[in-house]
Design a protein around this nucleic acid. Structure first.
Lengths: 248, 248
DNA sequence: CGGACAATTGATCTACCTCAAAATTGGTGG
DNA sequence: CCACCAATTTTGAGGTAGATCAATTGTCCG
């Protein structure tokens, strides 16, 4: 879906065009954005809390997550990111990182300098607005996760995530027929849902035994979409997809 | 601190100037922003999840919170807002509200139409950037709350909030000498920290008995700032104050 | 002074945690 | 192709932070 001849920025343009219709010049400006492509091995940090960031990363392939670690050693995964996402877009204006970003799998990323993004934004204000919107959707997802962490049961939290990630992957063509890859360890998931590893494992087992999902070899199948949506109280409104996309 | 003769927009300008140094024209544009002032009684919703928003509210006096309610009836408070905040700034670009906003006290708010904000942003790109930054800090606070909800104990969550709100109030001149008003019921706090009302009450008691805080008649005093900061693992970096502000 | 709401306390229960070990999986080198 | 290692997943057993249910007390106001 992304031939070698395509510039890496094309994925970025496509993602933004889900929300914004660009003029030809804007599109061109985006496509010509200088991007430095690099491959990073699984487990490596891309940026660390406390660092000053001078660039943002576009994910071209693989998954990555944002997290914070407490003095106790406990880790909270704040978000999970898939191809097309720019997880640290916020650093464009908040240069001091308040969290870290780690490769969950081997990832291919494109580095976009803040300098060139700034220039692009001032030349094309509608691009600035499109990027701003991306950061707002990011925040909306945080809010929904907060609801899960504060008020949903372990089972609902896990199921809710499965629904969310399936839809997000579907938008970028990486999921269909209620199946997708989830290249996370159970330890990663536990840290994302605020659970212990042991309890996460039991929660997954419960969802499997209820016939709602199957998950093996990092491959998720949602066996009963409507059942899962209902059980976990999933409503995709918070993803702010344009009207024509919303469904399961 | 805000004489009757001052236009309500002045509070907004002051808040934004914490992060951005404006040119005279920009400042003037902001001050002339048309604002409709209204008073709203405690407990009333200002916007509801699912509505389309055509304006954003600037808090002039009083507190308000954002929240979501689950089908079970459980409520999660997502954030708490004080004078100077524009809690639904996100609706400027995500018009469909994914959460509700409620007055926690009687509040005096200023309504700013999205139309006039849009015009201001396109005329003064640096104002757009300043607003974007505000939404990014908002998201940063969500991230920190996620860490609390997922990985901190009840005691730490409560204490952490006390530190945060004290500093945020201090910036707008509403707190000093480690004292400030916290016009929230314990029920509101419980919903903000993902706790039951009963447990929240016991947690407060614990912090009081440890000599870290006092809280009576909605008045908070932090009796041992350093002790509290240490016990709750509080680090204000996530508030992204400019360097000269950071301290307790 | 009464009524409504908010705060506090008691008693019991449970969802999820921690500690510990075993089983499974995937990758590597011989 | 197999043996082995390290990482991951799974299961068992027992403990606890925080939930729920149920009063009681305090506070604010009209």
């Amino acid at each position: 879906m992304n031939p070698a001849s395509d510039p890496p920025s094309l994925l970025f343009v496509r993602k933004l065009e889900v929300l914004t219709r660009f003029a030809a010049a804007e599109r061109e400006g985006l496509i010509n954005l200088p991007i430095v492509v690099r491959t990073i091995e699984a487990g490596r940090d891309i940026v660390r809390e406390g660092e000053f960031s001078k660039q943002s990363v576009l994910i071209l392939d693989g998954w990555l997550c944002r997290y914070k670690v407490l003095p106790s050693g406990a880790r909270q995964v704040l978000s999970v990111h898939v191809p097309g996402d720019v997880p640290d877009l916020m650093s464009l204006h908040l240069r001091l990182m308040d969290h870290s970003i780690m490769a969950m799998t081997e990832v291919k990323v494109g580095f976009m300098s803040h300098e060139s993004l700034d220039i692009l934004c001032s030349e094309f204000p509608r691009i600035a607005t499109a990027l701003w919107k991306e950061t707002l959707i990011d925040a909306s997802i945080f809010r929904e996760w907060m609801v899960g962490l504060g008020r949903r049961s372990a089972t609902q939290r896990v199921g809710h995530f499965m629904c969310e990630i399936y839809l997000r992957l579907q938008v970028v063509g990486l999921a269909k027929d209620h199946k997708c890859a989830i290249p996370m360890t159970q330890s990663d998931m536990a840290d994302a849902f605020g659970l212990s590893l042991v309890h996460l494992n039991r929660t997954l087992k419960e969802l499997k035994e209820a016939g709602l999902i199957s998950l093996r070899h990092q491959t998720l199948a949602i066996l009963n979409w409507h059942g899962l949506v209902k059980a976990c109280d999933f409503d995709p409104a918070y993803l702010h997809f344009s009207p024509q996309i919303r469904e399961g």
